[in-house]
Write a protein that binds this DNA or RNA. Structure first.
Lengths: 119, 119
DNA sequence: CATGACGGTATCCTTTTCGACACTATGTGC
DNA sequence: GCACATAGTGTCGAAAAGGATACCGTCATG
């Protein structure tokens, strides 16, 4: 962990907005949380849903989300390895936020053609 | 402008979440939008509300928000200069998102002591 | 004449982010 | 014996983000 996360928020009043943003900041965290809203998932299951995210990045994002107490990581001591990720209650409490992001995005974000139309 | 903003979103289905996030990504955009929800404001008015944001950063963020069609910039040809910033309809449509961020932040983000308690 | 307010720019530099790629261990199937 | 799947880790390097500082022109004020 390269930085101490959220050690303090020295911004002006009203910036809990900014504070929240820092939790879901990071290129893939929003999507990860969004997918986890559907339920518990294994590492590669999440990976397959976010094909453009490299393995290393996904690991990073999951670790940060875990450190922030938003997701839980459960390791099964077996081979091949099995690790399950799920939202914590705190993570689930972000649902309105994620939903708001989704709603706005659906209405306002134009996806790349090959995504919104093609395979 | 160093990059072409939001030229495409080549992520998996459901990632309009990620798309939305990219609009309000940037260290101060969330707060700027939050403050602009209150109404039209001049440059230094916004600045005073976000003391930790440097002038350069504020300019950057405002420019990006403007490029994204979220805020409008109105310049009055007078001396000393007067520039007003306000939300566009598209920007205002983000209100539920910002509000959700604020609500969650109020409940879950701990501000630094000197901010939440002291002057 | 000097200073400050206004709304910025320009330049430099450091930190952070992110992607590519190689590598790990173990068990199963071919 | 080899590749494959699982869930990662390590290292490298490019690019982007962000902060510090100095500077701009104009007008009003002292």
């Amino acid at each position: 962990m390269p930085r101490i996360r959220h050690e303090r928020f020295d911004c002006s009043p009203g910036c809990t907005v900014e504070g929240t943003l820092r939790y879901i900041d990071g290129k893939w965290k929003g999507v990860v949380l969004y997918h986890l809203l559907e339920g518990t998932m294994r590492f590669n299951e999440i990976r397959r849903r976010i094909p453009n995210c490299t393995q290393r990045m996904l690991t990073n994002q999951l670790r940060e989300l875990e450190m922030d107490g938003l997701i839980a990581r459960k390791v099964y001591a077996q081979v091949p390895p099995k690790v399950e990720y799920s939202l914590t209650p705190r993570g689930r409490s972000l649902e309105p936020v994620i939903t708001a992001l989704k709603v706005w995005g659906d209405a306002n974000v134009t996806l790349a053609p090959e995504v919104s139309q093609a395979a």
